[in-house]
Amino acid sequence: MTGEILLKTVLGGALITLFAIFFGLIFKGIDRKIVARMQMRVGPPIRQPFLDVIKLMNKETVVPENAIKWIYHASAIVCLASSAIILLYIPIAGIEPLLHGHGDIILIIYIFIISALAMVVGGFSSSSPFATVGAQREMITMASYEFPLAVVIIAIAWKLSEEIGGDVFSVYHIAQNPLWNSVGLLGFIGLLILLFAIVVVTPGELAKIPFDVAEAETEIAQGLLVEYSGRNLAMFYIADGVRTFAMASLITALFFPYNISPLLKNYISLGDFAIVTDFLFFLLKVFLIILFSVTLVRAGMARLRITQVVTTYWITITLIALFGLVLLMWDNQLDIPLPWVG
């Protein structure tokens, strides 16, 4: 019995990690292609990230003389590993995640912090002044986006405990009981506002434009990663793709956990292909979330200054998220039904 669970965890973990790396890189390629098309360019082929990783693997790995070597190497591994672990907790296409239990949504937020912290530690240990500035900026960004993100998650969990109850801090439980089905008009608007808040948090979480102050190429020479090269850089590169995929999957699980197969069953019989269609539909949802929260924002905006990042998250987005929370609370008291239902 224990052996079976161990086998399942190890094999499943390895499979999900490979799957996350593969799709993380594919989505990275699609992202680059779309940005190029939006700038009237041809853009690189979609398999370009794979070529980049192979190239980086073949390159020399330079370690700076003054770096703390074991931390310098370890932080690359920790960053990739912690990004991959997130996927073990998130239900993919409505399938029960490999590891789950009460409170795992809080754990997911912490693992996101660990992978960002690994980059910070790597930056500090590499002894470059650019990396030190980048690491400090990354910490400030982290401190500013965690608060609105926490508000969003607390709001969802609180509403779920009011409406349905059960293990409200479990992602799988949230994904099985989509809140959209049980709220009234005010709650619906509140959820839309929370969705907006988490979509704005996403580029900060993933260090993408306009919140990529920590990795600003032109200001501080790629910041955190300035000294990294070869295999270590490849690991950070993959980890970035995996984090993007994990964050989009988290939003999918929180806000759009619906599957398409129950809808299609009315028209055609899918049989065993139901899981395949669900899976493809899941990838489509993840793609749309990455498109709206990363790609379009990246192509359309310039980089903010670090003070502007803090103001945006601490004041604007936190207020917006709190307003969404208040709307969800009013929804319980006023209970206005949705106009298009009954």
Binding site: A216, Q222, S229
Partner: peptide, 14 residues
Amino acid sequence: AERFGIKLVGSPRH
């Protein structure tokens, strides 16, 4: 130039 996968990087290490 990015259509060949050529990208400008910020650090000689990359």
